[in-house]
Design a binder for these strands. Structure first.
Length: 986
RNA sequence: GGGGGAUUAGCUAUCUGGUGAAAGCACCCGACUCAUAAUCGGAGUCAGGCCGGUUCGAUCCCGGCAUCCCCCA
């Protein structure tokens, strides 16, 4: 340094400062940079090496398979990124966290998607195998698209070996689960009402129904004559003075129960009348009004609340004789008005209301879900006198042959009128399900289905639930209630795109063939050929000996399995097959999966192995918009993760924020409830990201000439215990951050990490430590202790900061790591990736809680001074804080004791060139006690501490901007202070 | 219709039976021009969805209602 910059106007003293230098950009340029970093990970085989080669235990977060259909949405992002944060943390902690991603590939939506994409003519000639081939191809295509999206988000997984529910080993394992349940006696065949379309002679799923607005049904009110009353009720009635009317044995002229139905054709299948046990019912005397024809009964039972309304509807005068709870009606028997049959009055469920009808519900277990469930409770048979085409069968007696959607209703209404059971008839408009393809009405019809008998292992399931840790804890109540109350699981579907139920029926006797031999045989065939084999081969090709010899007598079943059975078998098809932990360490899905995958997986695992497939279950809520509403196209509030990450058509309006901002969002919200997302939130997250990035950039930029090796080994690092107090405080803050963030990740409370990270970067680093550090870093000579000690801290902090953010901001963390300026210095060894460094730790020596109190005092003093400086700025008397000098005066006694202690602590520092109050306050001069400055610009007192602000004396040093009185004492540097001259002249 | 969850500053988040407390960001004002499409300082706003109960006292406990979300019917 010979020529004086002052003498050379083309140079300025700025060039003599140690300003930051780094190629690390202020902006992420995420669209280009993130894929580069991902390519780096791939080239290093980082995920593979860590997940397989880590020294720690195997950690299994088992992926719940998303459905292989449609574009990725923010719900996918929330789920997969949460999983990835947990996996990356586990990998950094040295665990072998292998993540096998999955897809749910079978089922109706894909089947329908394929069918919709075909011309009617094409569809007409479609074979099941053709359909399955197209569905298979479609599913793979969807999987590929979603996989690319997940990878772009930086998710680490076995992307080359995902599990798909359509893979042969998976299907084979699923058949194995089914087989074990069969052999354990948990699988049975039974009748169940399903949506049935007579026009297409097939069962329909809910998704295949539509509900036109203009449907009208011929509704009827019918009186069912009572045969017998339970003893207590009979006694009550006779006590009310009307015992005689309750006929015994004769149905004529006596008491009747009144029902209402919109499907008169189901009356031949009536097997009970259901009441709500909690509702009030009135037994009424019946008197015709006006011209109305007299009914055959003299007393009617109706819901008390509906009595008056029914008087109008039925044209009858109903005088209440006795009011009882529905529960008291249980045990009444009545005679079917059209058939020779006696049936009971039973207690139904809460579905029985007084909104319409009579409060007593006609119950035909073969033709309604509520009816079916109630019937099961009372052991009623599932009578279904309707064939595939919707024609009544011989079981319907005189009505056999009539069609339920055409002539049956009329004939039955006529018969009711003829026998005097018809109370009223009226057209009733309501929503009614139609076959979406034929546009014809559907019916409920009982069909043969396959069930898993939950009853057989309900207790075991409840015990398994109790052994699992549910997060949040309310999840346990939720699934427990569902499992306790649920009925048997109907696992058969009348569809083509799925795993077959491997059963044969005898062509003449109907006998079911399903045993260990056939199951093993089919399982082996599917393992080898995939489930297509079921459709490719005839019975002779599917049956094992000895049945194969008589193949012509057997017919293979056409049902497929419920897709929940598919995904519910993943513990067998994936976790166990791939050598992961079973039970898995963690399942993590949206809270809707209590009814879905958590439950189906639990049931199959308990049925086969007697325990849950998971040790812990973590659930998250749903992504909503900024106002807490569901995202929908019509509201225009949908956040497309692809646009968020890669930018929209107009990148000015929809910039490419990058995957890290999406990941930061996931970390920022409390996902135990529903989580909000919208443009405002994204913008804010982008600001937080920028703050973290710029903070890291500043750290990197000031390490450009730093060798992190200890001085003893030729480097620049100062031992921690020899650092100034300010630096020790910074390390204490860093240790505190590491400790709290480690705990946050342990509890999966990432939003706490998000808050702590923000506070660390903004307050501890940017506002305090780095603000004070500027003078040390820029002004001091490059190798001065004052600067090297600061760099020591920056280096320790930046590496740990990178590690702490790595599970969430994985790209930023790696980008920081790749830009560590001392990478490649001789003698410096550095892991290739931040993920190889391991989870950040802090030596115990950093944890010095006792530094917090005095530092807090001084920072409070700093705030007090700042307020006064600001008032000086407002009056125009000061600009930069370095234009000021400060006098601090402490009151005597208790009140100022903490501050006095803090100042004494600071004064006792071994490194007064760093630990001095003036530098900490960023002012040019500081005076403790003594006489006040001549011209005080501002003054304030707080808690016994008085500060006075005055214009700093001397002149501004052109290099360090401090105001000093020793300016101009060196001829070569007339505008510099003594300190700067010392630096420049060595 | 039933079950579950949410409701504190514009946003995200936090603590608490005692006149409550509340961070960061955003917004506003100012400084700097040696992190500059950056950085620093200051200020203000503002409150626990609504109604009722328990209590000497409730944001915090209980009940109801409203709005939103999930599941089921």
């Amino acid at each position: 340094m010979t020529a004086s910059p002052a003498a050379d106007p083309t140079r300025s003293y700025k060039d003599t400062l140690n300003l930051l230098q780094t190629p690390f950009g202020m902006r992420a340029n995420a669209k280009a940079r993130e894929p580069e970093l991902q390519a780096f990970w791939a080239s290093e085989h980082l995920y593979e090496r860590l997940s397989q080669g880590n020294p720690g235990p195997v950690f299994t977060l088992h992926d719940g398979p998303p459905y292989a259909n449609g574009a990725l949405h923010v719900g996918h992002a929330l789920n997969k990124i949460l999983k990835d944060i947990i996996n990356k943390t586990a990998l950094m902690q040295g665990k072998r966290a292998r993540f096998v991603p999955g897809w749910d590939c079978h089922g109706l939506p894909i089947e329908l998607k394929v069918l919709q994409g075909m011309k009617p003519a094409e569809r007409a000639t479609l074979t099941p195998l053709d359909l399955r081939g197209k569905a298979h191809a479609y599913a793979l295509e969807q999987v590929e698209g979603q996989r690319r999206g997940f990878e772009r988000w930086g998710i680490w997984a076995d992307w080359d070996e995902p599990y798909l529910t359509l893979q042969k080993p998976y299907e084979s394992a699923q058949i194995g689960v089914f087989g074990q349940m069969v052999l354990a006696g948990h699988i049975y065949r039974g009748l169940k009402p399903v949506h049935w379309s007579p026009s297409s002679r097939t069962a329909l799923a809910e998704a295949e129904l539509e509900y036109p607005d203009d449907h009208t049904s011929p509704s009827v009110f019918v009186a069912f004559p009572v045969e017998q009353l339970p003893e207590p009720l009979a006694a009550q009635l006779s006590a009310a003075g009307n015992g005689t009317a309750a006929c015994s044995g004769t149905a004529t002229g006596g008491l009747a129960v009144a029902i209402w139905t919109t499907t008169p054709w189901t009356l031949p299948a009536n097997l009970a009348v259901s009441v709500n046990g909690a509702l009030d019912y009135a037994i009424c005397a019946v008197v015709p009004r006006n011209e109305a024809p007299a009914p055959r009964c003299s007393q009617l039972v109706v819901a008390a609340e509906l009595r008056e309304r029914l008087e109008d509807t039925l044209g009858l005068s109903l005088t209440p004789l006795l009011t009882v709870k529905g529960a008291a009606l249980e045990g009444i028997t009545y005679h079917h008005p059209l058939l020779e049959r006696t049936s009971p009055v039973v207690i139904g469920g809460d579905y029985i209301t007084t909104e319409s009808g009579t409060g007593l519900v006609h119950t035909a277990p073969g033709h309604g879900v509520d009816d079916f469930n109630t019937g099961r409770k009372y052991g009623l048979p599932v009578l279904c006198p309707v064939d595939e085409a919707g024609n009544l069968t011989a079981e319907a007696g005189p009505f056999a042959g009539l069609n339920v959607l055409k002539d049956a209703n009329g004939a039955i209404i006529t018969a009711l009128r003829d026998c005097g059971a018809l109370l009223a008839e009226q057209a009733y408009a309501h929503r009614y399900p139609y076959d979406w393809r034929t546009k014809k009405p559907t019916i409920f019809r009982a069909t043969e289905q396959w069930f898993a008998s939950v009853e057989g292992f309900r207790e075991a399931a409840l015990q398994a639930i109790a052994a699992v840790e549910w997060l949040p804890a309310s999840g346990r109540n939720r699934i427990e209630a569902m499992v306790r109350e649920r009925g048997d699981w109907c696992i058969s579907r009348q569809r083509t795109w799925g795993v077959p139920i491997p059963v044969f029926y005898h062509r003449t006797t109907g006998e079911v063939l399903l045993n260990a031999t056939t199951l093993d045989h089919i399982q082996a065939l599917i393992a080898e050929h995939g489930s297509d084999v079921w459709w490719q081969r005839d019975e002779a090709g599917l049956l094992p000996e000895p049945w194969a010899a008589d193949a012509a007598s057997w017919r293979k079943g056409t049902d497929t399995m419920d897709v929940w059975f598919d995904s519910g078998s993943s513990w067998a098809g994936v976790v166990r097959q791939r050598g992961l932990n079973y039970p898995a360490d963690l399942y993590l899905e949206g809270s809707d999966q209590h009814r879905g995958w958590f439950q189906s997986s639990l049931l199959t695992s308990v049925a086969v192995n007697g325990h849950a497939p998971y040790k812990r279950v973590l659930t998250h809520g749903f992504a909503l918009d900024e106002k807490g509403r569901k995202m929908s196209k019509s509201l225009g509030n949908v956040v497309d993760p692809a646009v968020l990450v890669e930018g929209g058509k107009n990148e000015k309006q929809e910039p490419a924020y990058g995957a890290d901002v999406l990941r930061l969002w996931v970390s920022s919200v409390d996902y135990s409830a529903d989580v909000p997302l919208g443009p405002g939130i994204v913008k804010q997250l982008a600001d937080v990201y920028r703050k973290v990035r710029n903070t890291a950039r500043y750290l990197l930029g000031n390490l450009h000439d730093f060798d992190p090796r200890p001085q003893a080994q030729g480097g620049h690092a100062i031992p921690a215990d020899q650092l100034p107090l300010l630096d020790q405080w910074m390390l204490q803050r860093t240790a505190a951050l590491i400790d709290s963030v480690s705990a946050d990740f342990e509890r999966f409370e990432f939003y706490r990490f998000f808050q702590a990270l923000q506070n660390f970067c903004v307050v501890d680093l940017s506002n305090v430590y780095l603000d004070i550090a500027k003078d040390r870093l820029y002004v001091s000579a490059a190798s001065e202790f004052r600067r090297r000690s600061c760099q020591t801290v920056l280096q320790l902090v930046v590496e740990r900061l990178a590690g702490l953010i790595a599970p969430v901001l994985c790209h930023l963390a790696e980008d920081i790591w790749q830009h560590l300026p001392y990478r490649g210095l001789p003698g410096v060894s550095l892991e290739a990736s931040v993920f190889e460094r391991g989870w950040p730790t802090a030596p115990d020596a950093w944890r010095r809680q006792e530094l917090e109190a005095p530092t807090g005092q001084i920072l409070a003093l700093r705030a007090l001074v700042n307020r006064q400086l600001e008032s000086c700025r407002a009056s125009g008397s000061l600009g930069s804080s370095l234009e000021a000098q400060v006098q601090v005066e402490l009151a005597t006694g208790e009140i100022a004791a903490p501050m006095a202690a803090a100042l004494a602590w600071l004064a006792s520092s071994a490194h007064p060139t760093v630990d001095n109050l003036g530098d900490w306050l960023l002012v040019s001069a500081l005076q403790l006690g003594g006489d006040p400055p001549a011209a005080v610009l501002a003054e304030a007192s707080e808690a016994g501490v008085t500060v006075r602000i005055a214009q700093a004396e001397g002149q501004k040093c052109e290099r360090c901007w401090h105001y000093e009185s020793d300016i101009g004492q060196h001829a070569a540097h007339p505008s510099l202070c003594g300190r700067c001259v010392g630096v420049l002249e060595g």
